[in-house]
Amino acid sequence: MDRRTFLKASAGAVAGTVLANQLTSALAQGGLEGEDIANLEKGLQQVLGKSFKDLTPSQQVKLVAPTIAESGANVPVEIEASLPADQVKAIHCFSDKNANPLLFTVVLNGVLPYYATRVRVAETAPVRAVVETKDGRLLMASQSVRVTVGGCG
């Protein structure tokens, strides 16, 4: 991007500096911070009898979680699926590095495909929302949550 792009401003106004609004998209990184698939597999086997490769990353699952947790002991997560309510069986949630990676399972029956709660995340790792459909699909959204020792303001 041209960092010396000036706005043609009308008389009296000070020219401004224009920045592209794809700031964050330019920051595409490699894998998620703290990823630990081997540990995650334990939880997946335990609850679903499935493995990580059986999960399909999907735009239909929306996971809202903080990028940096206020406290690892209290991380708000909100999960919503853009699917008809009667197609969704359950919502599962995992964190890669927890000793027990399963955070919760909720079975929905007649409510909208939405669930919000607060979870414990042991250390910086991805949180995974897994939406289980009635026809057996496992749709996933992931986001890394930083749990920091805290430094300074």
Partner: peptide, 16 residues
């Protein structure tokens, strides 16, 4: 709805 919270759910939990 039925929730099965484990040790991974925070103190004074919210279920929404």
């Amino acid at each position: 709805a039925q929730v099965k919270p484990g040790p991974g759910t925070s103190a004074n939990p919210l279920f929404a």
